[in-house]
Write a protein that binds this DNA or RNA. Sequence first.
DNA 1: TCAGGGTCTGACCGATCGGTCAGGCATGCT
DNA 2: AGCATGCCTGACCGATCGGTCAGACCCTGA
Lengths: 195, 195
Amino acid sequence: MSRAVPDTHGEILAAAARRFAVAGYGGTSLQDIAREVGCSKATVLYHFANKEALLAELMAPAITVLQDLDDQLTGLTGTAAQKAAAAGFVDLAVRFRREIALLRGEFPVLLCQPAFAHIQQISERLRDAFAGHSDRPGARITALVLLAGISEACAEFVDIPDDELRPALLALVLRALEPVDAPLPQPPTTEDKEL
Amino acid sequence: MSRAVPDTHGEILAAAARRFAVAGYGGTSLQDIAREVGCSKATVLYHFANKEALLAELMAPAITVLQDLDDQLTGLTGTAAQKAAAAGFVDLAVRFRREIALLRGEFPVLLCQPAFAHIQQISERLRDAFAGHSDRPGARITALVLLAGISEACAEFVDIPDDELRPALLALVLRALEPVDAPLPQPPTTEDKEL
DNA sequence: TCAGGGTCTGACCGATCGGTCAGGCATGCT
DNA sequence: AGCATGCCTGACCGATCGGTCAGACCCTGA
């Protein structure tokens, strides 16, 4: 049988995920992680170049999916962009809520680090899509409220099953989003804008 | 005239607010604050018992208003609780968005400290009021998304004037809240249906 | 039997943190 | 002049942080 192959690497990863979720990235020391695994801090740093590399490996799957979503949103405008962004982000947030919980408000600090710089750009494009690429303050405010709120809710409601959380969030978003390209009483004359 | 009365206490307070807003509470050292004021770290600790006391004095006005809001919400139920909580919290968040920005995701950590323990209870009651005191998952999820989203938005949009931010947030909240005690399909008068 | 590579560790490093303390300095009252 | 008081500081403290390093302990293949 598969008798106790150590897999220290994986154990460290799992322990780090648990600690980060409780105390955040900044609030968790390498010593904490080592203690949880039952090894020395030096062992943690033998398996991972540094603390940031640990976080990066933990976040990698979520980041990949986030980039895919970003690709899918390119070219979409108006309500189409809003709906696609809403469905895509809600699904992503629900699936990776453990990863979102890891960062718990440390987004602003972590995104400043060069290793995560491109994430910031993606999140700005995502917010823009949520606003239907409108620059109306109402649309921009709504987009930010929803994106931040969804992240927080997913990090908080770890006990609710995906199939319950996802539709509830999606319904909320569709209810709350400002329609962006349909407030005009007579729209046909404005389509030359696209050309 | 009032010629250069030092008011070091106030200067430290202002400098701390500026630094906390940029780097967060945990990310700001007493040394940083002292450097910004142009005094020594020991001077900061001469005017304030410790770092936490500095934060407490900075947050005091906002906390007072939060407690007032909490009082006003006691006894309200259903949609009345939702609307009162929405109006009250949006107003509070807009007015004190600088204070909210100070904490930037450090709520979970700071609320664990005994000095801020009662804030956690208030915020839970507030969330409950947002949900119209319903325990439907949809209502609870919506409440959390909106509360967290509003906080984040207020911390982010420091450049938008109050009079623009407040109505936009209020409209969003009223649009997004699940009605909780009005699931009736037909209003009392059926003839206004034509309108 | 021995060499070598993968794994792991205790000891240690420099930096930084919040906080303490004795004392310097200016001012104003007696 | 002498003294008390309020304000401020440099030097220092113990703790903790992320990270380094030489070496010990396996296991395996020659």
